[in-house]
């Protein structure tokens, strides 16, 4: 394998919860790496530790032990404020239920991440317009989220995730709430982003989605079960089958 820049890395990460007298070992010594330009999916049955892993990757939670490095920095012991900064600067969140703020327009929603870094102004507006264009919603900047379809809302969410030029996109079942046609469109958009060099980490339970990624990390009982490398070829073919429209 050629030398690649590691942008996110788990080193023997444990995450234990105490529930009453029991200790739940949600993650039990997970090590993995995300390189720049990666398209990685994380799969596993429910209870395998997917959500815990997502929360840790997104700096919404801290590991009980072990090290989580984002960029070249250990973030596993950072303060709440510092973690907020890491989320705001390095990570682009995409959620299953879109999670746009209902009372704000598309443009205002896109500006939210930069607002918390005091970067709202003419430049942020230009960037929002550019990204809205890129996801095909350049004419909808003044609309409220509820005036958009599910697929359109998810496009806005993807544009929002790109606003801060994150190290990687972190998607949680990004197509879980969409019908199959819209799902295919969103997955195509991810493919486009990936070919532009955007790093994507996606948690999913849908094999058809996972097959379009470069690699799939399988979790089982809080540990890494296996890491499967999909060749780009098979990924494309599999995606073609799923969407039923690509050769």
């Amino acid at each position: 394998m050629t030398e690649r820049e590691i942008i996110a890395e788990f080193v023997d990460v444990h995450r234990h919860y105490t529930m009453g007298d029991n200790i739940v070992r949600a993650l039990n010594g997970v090590s993995m790496q995300v390189a720049r330009g990666d398209y990685l999916t994380i799969m596993g049955r429910s209870g395998s530790g997917k959500s815990t892993m997502l929360n840790l990757l997104g700096c919404l939670d801290r590991p009980t032990s072990g090290e989580y490095r984002v960029g070249n920095r250990d973030v596993s012991r950072l303060s709440d404020d510092a973690l907020s900064d890491v989320r705001g600067r390095e990570i682009g969140f995409i959620f299953q239920s879109f999670n746009l703020i209902p009372q704000l327009t598309v443009l205002e929603n896109l500006e939210v991440p930069l607002f918390y870094q005091n970067r709202v102004g003419a430049e942020s507006r230009k960037k929002a317009e550019y990204l809205a264009d890129r996801v095909g919603l350049g004419q909808r900047l003044e609309h409220k989220p509820l005036e958009l379809s599910g697929g359109q809302q998810q496009r806005v969410a993807i544009a929002r995730a790109l606003m801060n030029d994150p190290l990687f996109l972190l998607a949680d079942e990004a197509t879980g709430n969409l019908d199959s046609n819209t799902e295919a469109e969103i997955l195509d958009l991810f493919d486009d982003l990936r070919s532009d060099g955007v790093t994507i980490v996606m948690v999913t339970h849908n094999p058809a989605v996972a097959e379009r990624a470069d690699r799939t990390l399988w979790l089982k009982d809080g540990e890494v079960e296996k890491l499967i490398e999909n060749t780009r070829q098979t990924a494309t073919v599999a995606a073609g089958d799923a969407a039923g429209e690509q050769a």
């Binding site: 709440d80 404020d81 703020i101 939210v112 918390y116 929002r160 801060n164």
Partner: peptide
């Protein structure tokens, strides 16, 4: 609550 979660995920600190 959910909006608060979204804002926190997008980088809002407690003070925000």
């Amino acid at each position: 609550t959910r909006e608060i979660g979204i804002r926190r995920a997008l980088g809002a600190k407690r003070k925000h």
